[in-house]
């Protein structure tokens, strides 16, 4: 159990409703497999705290197999008539925007408010817990506001949410499973192996070559891990500190800051950063799941080049 357990219960509720809807959807050719996928996922959110890690691990493999062999397809859509939607927009007008704006407003207020929740001078919630609780609270407030504005029943709202989740499909689970992979990579020492590879191929007596190796290494390793935070300690410990700081006298603060931003350029170019690149493609109903990445690649490459130039220009400012 944790401070986040009530949130997981709510997420599990939406997942359970989607499982039910899928099970009853006669128009879905794979409805048994789809209902099983969403049902197992709902169980992991509702009852995960009471399951052994081994059982959870087995269920994750089951989810991957269900999705991997085409078991999770989008169900029959029950969309409201466009004319009705336009009428409703006319009637409700800008009142429709209010709940949408309430989510970020309440989240930001909650994050700052949580800093005052202290027991013996220590914050009651960690930064991450506070953010997630504030976001969830913001969603609940926004839901109440939206229900009042539209005069719909709560179950209609959860159903509409389940419909959006159905449109995203198994990709919704990808960020979570990638985080699991990151943990396994770390346990197996993938980072050390990559850092060793990079340091073997770099001509270390050239400042520029070392800058290039660190910047490109950050971008490339972020593309593999899907996360610049995972790449940073590996590349900075393996290349940045020994070669740039140790050998060439670079200044660490600027090197780290710009190095991390090279990683962000990598984030823009990889399907491994699923929550930024793949989930939005599904959410915007794009046919090409890599369309967002393709739109970002020119920006990412130009910025990566800019980062190399900026780093080369500034990190050696105290060196001879």
């Amino acid at each position: 159990m944790s401070a986040l357990s009530p949130i997981y219960l709510l997420v599990g509720g939406v997942l359970a409703l989607l499982a039910l809807r899928t099970a009853r959807d006669a128009g879905n050719p794979r409805r048994a497999a789809g209902a099983l996928f969403w049902g197992v996922l709902a169980a992991l959110f509702v009852a995960g705290d009471f399951m052994s890690p081994l059982l959870v691990g087995v269920l994750v493999v089951v989810l991957a197999l269900l999705a991997g062999f085409g078991g999770v397809v989008r169900g029959t859509r029950v969309e409201r008539d466009p004319i009705e939607r336009a009428d409703s927009a006319q009637r409700l007008g800008n009142r429709l925007f209010l709940p949408v704006l309430l989510i970020p407003a309440a989240t930001v207020a909650g994050v700052y408010g949580a800093k005052f929740l202290q027991v013996d001078g220590k914050p009651l919630l960690s930064g991450q817990e506070a953010t997630l609780l504030a976001l969830s609270l913001g969603c609940l407030l926004a839901l109440v506001a939206a229900l009042r504005a539209t005069r719909e029943r709560p179950l209609v709202a959860i159903g509409a949410g389940a419909g959006l989740l159905d449109a995203i499909g198994w990709a919704a689970l990808l960020p979570l499973v990638l985080a699991v992979l990151g943990g396994l990579f770390a346990a197996a020492g993938v980072g050390d192996a990559v850092a060793k590879l990079v340091s073997v191929v770099v001509p270390t007596d050239s400042r520029f070559a070392c800058v290039l190796a660190y910047c490109l290494g950050m971008a490339a390793f972020t593309m593999i891990m899907g996360n610049a935070f995972a790449a940073f300690p590996v590349m900075t410990g393996g290349v940045g500190l020994p070669l740039l700081v140790g050998l060439h006298g670079a200044e660490p603060a600027s090197m780290a800051a710009i190095g991390m931003l090279c990683g962000y350029c990598g984030t823009l170019m990889t399907p491994m950063a699923a929550n930024f690149n793949i989930v939005p493609a599904a959410l915007l109903e794009l046919r090409d799941s890599h369309a967002v990445i393709k739109a970002q690649v020119p920006t990412a490459l130009m910025l990566l080049a800019a980062n190399v130039a900026i780093m080369h220009a500034v990190v050696f400012r105290h060196a001879g």
Partner: peptide
């Protein structure tokens, strides 16, 4: 997996957005 479940909390925004989209 259990530790990283927070990555799915975005699901809670969907009922709000879905309901409002239904209403224009």
């Amino acid at each position: 997996f259990l530790k990283n479940r927070f990555l799915m909390v975005f699901v809670l925004t969907l009922p709000v957005i879905g309901l409002l989209e239904r209403n224009g």
